[in-house]
Structures are given as structure tokens and as C-alpha cells.
Amino acid sequence: MAFRDEIQALSGQNVNLCFQCSKCSSGCPLADKMDLKPAQVMHSIRLGRADSVLNSQAIWLCVDCETCTSRCPQDVEPAAAMAAVRVLALQKGIKPSVKVIDIYYRGFVDNMRLNGKIHDASVAGITQLLTGQLIPDLPLAMKLLVRGRVKPPPLPLGGGRFRKIYRNALAKEKESRA
């Protein structure tokens, strides 16, 4: 399937409707940090430039704030297209170009596998440790601890529910792609 069609199948978005007004880029709070701005991501998908989109930092810097989707005069949802590109990139085994975000998302799901819920302090601490950002935030962590906003990690119970969903979902997706 062509790249553009794959994105359409995953996101339900017809990028051909985009008329490049750039309203999405103008309102995106992360645009100044992105290599491809949201309107450029849309245009690149339309042109089938799979490599540049799948390897862009933009798709990983998107926080899913939905400003773009909310303002698009053509009723296209750039945020949904971004999400579809992220899924496709991982399906194709492409390493996210923003490493810290990859570490965070994976660590987050690993933590869910323990308890079903996440223990926010562990997710934050482990992510920051692995990305070398723990030290600057230690004083803040201490302040949160004394204020009772850092809870002790729970016993790894209750993760069974999520682990089953995880197993089933990945198996089903594999089966439908086969």
C-alpha cells in the first residue's frame, strides 16, 4: 500500500483535502521545535515522502494537544495523521528520532504491565535516569516527597488485566497484518 494510503487507513484522514493554509503550523505550540511543521508533514504525506516523515522529529514532538485538528478549516485532523505516522514508524521498526520520547513511552507501557496503573514517580524517575536528566530534578522530587505527592511504589499486583489486553492486542494486530 502506498504510504499516503497507509496513513489514511490508520487515521481515517484524507490528506488530499489539505489546502496548505498552514493554520495547523501557526497554532502548534511545538512548531518552533519541529523539523517538519504540521502543514509540511501533511504535504509530505500527500507527496508520499515516507522516509522524511517517518524519520522526522516532528511526529515525536507532537504532544497531541489537538490545536491543529481543532482549527483546520478543511476538517482534516493533522494530530490523527501524526499519530498514524508514529504507529507506522514503529511497525516498520524505525527507531523514533527523539530518543527520550521513545524511552519514556516504552517505560510507561512497561510500568503499566506491572500494575495496570502507572506509578508516576517510577515512570518519571526511570525515564530521567535513563536520559541523564535525573540530577537537575532531584530537589523538586524531594519537595514533592515531603508534600506527599510521591507515593511508595505499589506491589506489582493488578497488572494481569493489562497484560492480557496487551498480549491479545498485539496478537490480533499481528494476525490481521499477516
Binding site: 490508520l10 504532544v63 497531541d64 499519530a83 498514524a84 508514529r86 504507529v87 514503529l90 519514556y104 513511552y105 516504552r106 510507561f108 507501557v109 503499566m112 495496570g116 496503573k117 502507572i118 493488578g158 488485566r161 493489562f162 489486553i165 496487551y166 492486542a169 498485539l170 490480533k172 494486530e173
Partner: peptide, 16 residues
């Protein structure tokens, strides 16, 4: 209840 998955679960798999 379990976590909503935020952006992490949908990034790994759409169905998840």
C-alpha cells in the same frame, strides 16, 4: 480500573 494508556499505548499499537 487501569491506566488510560495516554499517548504511550497508542504509539506502540493502534489496537492497544
Amino acid at each position: 480500573w487501569i491506566c488510560c494508556g495516554t499517548l504511550a499505548a497508542p504509539s506502540l499499537s493502534r489496537l492497544l
